[in-house]
């Protein structure tokens, strides 16, 4: 093959899939509201499939329980199903279903492309700031205690996820203005909502802390390029390979990981996959750096860490 021929673009399968599922959810919501399909009904906080199977946002259910006390048992079936899913799969809602996540994901891609263009022209672009982490949990606690003490489900009323749902599904457009501001803000603070503010994301993260479904790191393939593309493309700002390089774990342990697969799609050496690999066990007891073992890890059956520890 001619060396000058442009490299064929790698198919970003996870990106395509996760955007398809999120878009499909939005389409189903709209079709249900238009009464074009009879088997799907609901909004962003609660849906019902075939008129029987309920799904209700577990955080919304908890807020309502704390605020209002007695509720229909149906809500617990709906919330329970999603809690089970989160216990098993982690916060997949964020990466694969959330309509706001979908919009902000597209917004981020657009902003990346524009930034790239500006960069190529040699101009100074917009400032790029790092959104603060660790605010989601205090906000979650605040929202829950607010429900308990003020008797009012605060997040369900002012959630941008709901604004989007009400705007698109029920034609209540007012809240979409808030989303527009959020989208513009995220050109400077990428994924500010998901990373720093979203209490629902925080809630799912907590539920999914021990989920077996994770982004798995292939120990035999890791450490070849050290390109760091996974980390620069992670929407949640996770140091993707850190858990492997510092502790030797075969999966991403960070609870913020939404299993969106953005890191998998950019990895040039297919180090990362989605699967039921759990938190995994460390490769060796010694905590050695993976960096010096680049060459040795090419050899079969020789672990990167042991190579690093012996000093290549």
């Amino acid at each position: 093959m001619n060396a000058k021929s442009p490299k064929r673009k790698h198919l970003k399968i996870h990106t395509i899939l996760r955007r398809t599922t999120a878009f499909l959810f939005l389409v189903l919501l709209v079709l249900g509201a238009l009464d074009w399909i009879s088997w799907f009904r609901g909004g962003t906080t609660g849906t019902r499939i075939f008129g029987i199977v309920p799904f209700t946002d577990p955080l919304a259910s908890l807020e309502v329980l704390l605020a209002g006390g007695v509720t229909k048992p149906l809500i617990w079936i709906g919330a329970g199903l999603l809690v089970l899913l989160a216990l098993l799969l982690g916060p997949v809602f964020c990466g694969w279903i959330c309509p706001l996540g979908f919009v902000l994901d597209l917004n981020e891609t657009l902003s990346r492309k524009v930034r790239h263009r500006i960069h190529l022209k040699g101009r100074k672009g917009l400032p790029l700031l790092e959104p603060p982490d660790g605010l989601r949990f205090p906000l979650l606690l605040f929202v829950l205690s607010f429900s308990l003490f003020a008797g009012f489900p605060l997040f369900q009323t002012f959630s941008p996820i709901n604004f989007l749902g009400w705007g698109i599904v029920f034609g209540v457009w007012g809240g979409l203005l808030v989303l527009l501001i959020l989208c513009i803000l995220e050109w400077v603070l990428p994924r500010f909502w998901c990373r720093s503010l979203c209490p629902l994301g925080g809630f799912y993260s907590l539920l999914g802390k021990a989920a077996p479904f994770r982004i798995c790191i292939s120990k035999s393939r890791a450490g070849k390029t050290l390109c760091g593309l996974c980390t620069t493309h992670c929407p949640m700002g996770i140091q993707v390979m850190e858990n492997f390089t510092t502790k030797g774990f075969g999966s991403i342990a960070d609870s913020r990981c939404t299993r969106c697969g953005a890191c998998i799609d950019v990895c040039p050496k297919t180090v990362l996959t989605l699967g039921f690999c759990g938190k995994g066990k460390p490769l060796t007891q010694e905590l050695g750096p993976a960096l010096p073992c680049r060459e040795s890890s090419f050899k079969k059956n020789e672990s990167c860490l042991s190579g690093g520890a012996h000093g290549t």
């Binding site: 009904r41 609660g46 209700t56 259910s61 309502v64 209002g68 009012f152 029920f170």
Partner: peptide, 18 residues
């Protein structure tokens, strides 16, 4: 439900509207 209780119990899903 009565005023404030309704605000506390409604999860704003819009299924009644549909």
């Amino acid at each position: 439900r009565e005023g404030k209780e309704f605000l506390a119990t409604c999860i704003r899903c819009g299924q009644c509207v549909e």
